[in-house]
Amino acid sequence: MNIFRLAGDMTHLMSVLVLLLKIHTIKSCAGISLKTQELYALVFAARYLDIFTHYYSLYNTVMKLIFLGSSFSILWYMKRHKVVRRSYDKDQDTFRHHFLVLPCLVLALLINEKFTFKEVMWTFSIYLEAVAILPQLVLLQRTRNVDNLTGQYVFLLGAYRGLYIINWIYRYFAEPTYSTHWITWISGLLQTLLYADFFYYYINSVKNNVRLQLPA
């Protein structure tokens, strides 16, 4: 475990807590894409299949439980909670995210490190996480006005991915047994690039202290 990895996990944890805080305190999920949240829940479900079979560390297991618990409780809030679900704008959140799931599954069946159920599901979760933010970014473009918490949520998600890339670079040089992991590296890099333009507009809006406006 290195500082970049820990910072990445903490940033990721912050992003889900910011989202839960927003939904729980102001009882609204305006501007949040349910499709992205569904994809994230699927990412965690497919990636953490080994949670009960392989014990790495207490930290690892606790964080997996937190990410699983938070992503499914966000789904519950947005779909079941009588007040919160009324603020979900399904007319705007129209990204056909089913079209993302199947290609990722097919790709995981074709390109993986080992053709076993768990390895294919893990690889599927890596590919799916790379594109999971798309419905949310499309929704932000549509709703144009991005409220602070939503902006912070997406920013923290992008920062977590960026820190993971630095973590991989650090591990490559620091750990002698560390070998190449092209699937994870390329997928993680593409995922982080998706945030690039959002970062540009977000940082500008923070610098100029104006509301975040994404170009149409």
Binding site: R5, D9, H12, D50, H54, Y56, S57, N60, M63, K64, F67, W122, Y164, N167, R171, E175, T177, Y178, S179, H181, T184
Partner: peptide, 10 residues
């Protein structure tokens, strides 16, 4: 295993 794995990551 000889090579490290990324399964210890989240």
């Amino acid at each position: 295993p000889s090579h490290s794995s990324l399964k210890d990551e989240l």
